[in-house]
Design a protein around this nucleic acid. Structure first.
Lengths: 195, 195
DNA sequence: GCGTTCATGTAACCTGTTACATGATTCT
DNA sequence: AGAATCATGTAACAGGTTACATGAACGC
């Protein structure tokens, strides 16, 4: 439903093959939307069928031919139309936070280890965003401003994670939770009547 | 692959029917993991088959019978095992940010409207988290601390969105982008050789 | 010799959504 | 009278992942 739009954004920058789009999904666009090449080829077929792009085979020697897609006016119109529609913010989906919900029934040390691992991961990702962001500094084009803004969401997100994980580790330190009432809300209530 | 774990967390608190689990997914756990009842019933069937929970039909009059699932020791073990495995942080997936990447090819006013809409949405969501968070204050159990910590991720996330949207609106104001070089990186290059 | 890059795709599978289906009770 | 709640499920579809398949060129 929406991979279509992500691909159209990629094509709006210039004609690209499925392979090119897949590569871009691994780099710039991939920060905010990802897809495997199998899905991209499948979807680009549909885009062609619905006339949002046209395909042209470019012969190559030694390698398989490239099939280059060029966005059509209908495709550009789709993109404009799409940006006028209300876009629902995605909801968080993270099983790690579900573990916190059931914190009494999981391994606390495992949780702490995962917190530490996440601090590293998010620090790394943050650094990546910072690098990309700096490359766009001191420019004066709308295109770069847009990309910068998008990267800033990523930077904020990663920074918040690092900070939260650090504080969660403190609050879940053995000393910190030593005196807590660990109410077990459900235990096998003295054997069911069966047998 | 993972809905299983979310359901097991729900069941670890006590025996529940599919209906109960679905309700909980609309409330507490639903902040971080969602699923429709159709998917939940399907998955709980599998959980039963693999012996992680046992089912017991509880007759009712006037309503369909409840089928109550109770987690087994194997189920609890699965939960513990799971929490010891490394958990990969989910990646951001938001087409709205893809629009920023292709900001030159979309409708700027549409984008601004969406920014304003998001500010409201995220403010509302933030308020929801705050309420739930306050309900857990001044308690001293590990269970409540876990839930509080999870809610804090939500609060941070929503707060950052509000802040970012506000700043993005300023930086994309008509006055702000008036003098920008809007390089169009791709235009139909003077007609292909075909006619 | 071996892995990577280039370049296309298909098939099977798993996950998740939408819609259909039933039927009594309770609230407005 | 009509909607919501309780309570179960199925079927069809859409979206996404994994694995299979091919084959030349290039760097180590």
């Amino acid at each position: 439903m929406s991979l279509k739009h992500a691909i159209l954004v990629a094509l709006s920058e210039g004609p690209k093959s499925g392979y090119d789009v897949a590569k871009q999904f691994d780099e710039s666009i991939g920060f905010f939307w990802r897809a495997r090449h199998s899905q991209i080829y499948r979807e680009m077929g549909k885009i062609k069928e619905s006339g949002l792009a046209v395909a042209e085979e470019v012969p190559q020697s030694g390698k398989p031919n490239r099939i280059v897609f060029t966005i059509t006016d209908a495709g550009r119109e789709t993109l404009l139309q799409w940006s006028r529609e209300p876009s629902e913010p995605p909801e968080m989906k993270d099983l790690f936070l579900v573990q916190f919900h059931g914190i009494e029934h999981i391994d606390l040390d495992g949780l702490r280890q995962n917190l530490m691992r996440r601090i590293e991961t998010h620090q790394d990702r943050h650094a990546e965003y910072v690098v990309k962001h700096q490359l766009l500094e001191d420019t004066n084009s709308l295109a770069d401003l847009g990309q910068q803004l998008a990267l800033e969401v990523g930077m904020r997100w990663e920074y918040q994670w690092v900070d939260w994980c650090t504080k969660a580790l403190e609050r879940l330190a053995p000393e910190a939770i030593a005196g807590m009432t660990n109410v077990v809300p459900f235990q096998k209530e003295g054997k069911k009547n069966a047998e």
